[in-house]
Computed example of a mutant assay.
Amino acid sequence: MKSPEPDDTPILITDAAQSYEEEFATRRRRYSIMMALRVPCLVLAAVFYNTPWLAVAFILVSIPLPWMAVIIANDRLPIKASKFRRYRDDSDVAALERKDHPVIEP
């Protein structure tokens, strides 16, 4: 039986979480991005003041952004589902499946 080719991906040895500083920086970056999206919405609403429905749409989009930014920034980061390698010897599985299984009848 051929041996599996070596995989260059490292084997997972720990489920260590990000440090508090890294997590805080990520959350702060998300908050800044969401709050920065509000400014263009309000500017576009001012630019399209001649088209009232479009200006109102931009204003309505910008209203929940601060609330969503706070909720997302205060939430913890999701736990990443990582796929890791496990050693699996397929020769044992194949050998077990090839054997005849005795049937016991009453």
Rank of each mutant, 00 (worst) to 15 (best):
A45W: 07
L44D: 05
I13G: 09
P64H: 10
V103R: 05
W67D: 09
I13P: 01
L65M: 12
W53S: 14
D100V: 11
P52C: 05
A94F: 12
S91Y: 08
I33E: 11
L12H: 02
P106H: 03
A17W: 05
A69P: 00
L37A: 05
L44T: 03
Y20M: 04
R28M: 13
E22W: 01
E22G: 02
I33L: 13
L42C: 06
L42D: 05
E22A: 06
I72P: 00
I59L: 14
D89V: 10
D75K: 06
M34S: 03
A69W: 01
A57Y: 08
H101N: 05
M34R: 08
A81K: 12
P40K: 02
I79L: 10
I33Y: 08
L60R: 04
R38P: 00
R38L: 11
K83E: 07
P102W: 10
Q18P: 02
A36P: 00
R29F: 12
A17I: 07
V103C: 02
D90R: 00
D100F: 14
I59T: 11
R98Y: 11
P66I: 11
V56C: 05
F48N: 15
W67V: 15
S62A: 15
A16W: 03
W67N: 09
A55F: 11
P52Y: 09
P106N: 03
R29I: 04
A16N: 13
P78D: 10
Y87V: 14
V61R: 03
D100T: 07
S19V: 03
R29D: 10
D100I: 10
I13R: 09
V61Y: 06
R76W: 02
R38W: 08
M35N: 06
E97P: 00
D75Q: 09
N50A: 13
S32Q: 11
M34P: 00
T14E: 11
V70H: 01
V39P: 00
A94P: 02
S62D: 01
I79E: 06
E22F: 00
D92A: 07
I63P: 00
F58T: 02
S91A: 10
I33T: 11
F58V: 00
E21A: 07
S82T: 03
Y20E: 14
D89H: 07
P52L: 13
P64E: 06
V43C: 12
K80N: 09
Y87C: 04
T51G: 07
V61M: 11
P66A: 11
L44K: 03
Q18H: 04
V70Y: 03
A69Q: 01
R86G: 01
T26Q: 15
V103T: 07
V70N: 01
E97T: 11
S82R: 04
R29A: 14
R29S: 10
D92P: 04
A73L: 00
E23N: 06
V93E: 10
F48Y: 14
F24R: 09
A36L: 09
Q18M: 09
D100Q: 09
Q18R: 08
K99G: 02
M68R: 07
S91P: 00
V39T: 12
P106F: 03
A73H: 01
R86I: 15
K99L: 12
W67K: 09
R28K: 14
T51M: 07
D92F: 05
R76Q: 05
S82Q: 05
P64C: 09
V70K: 01
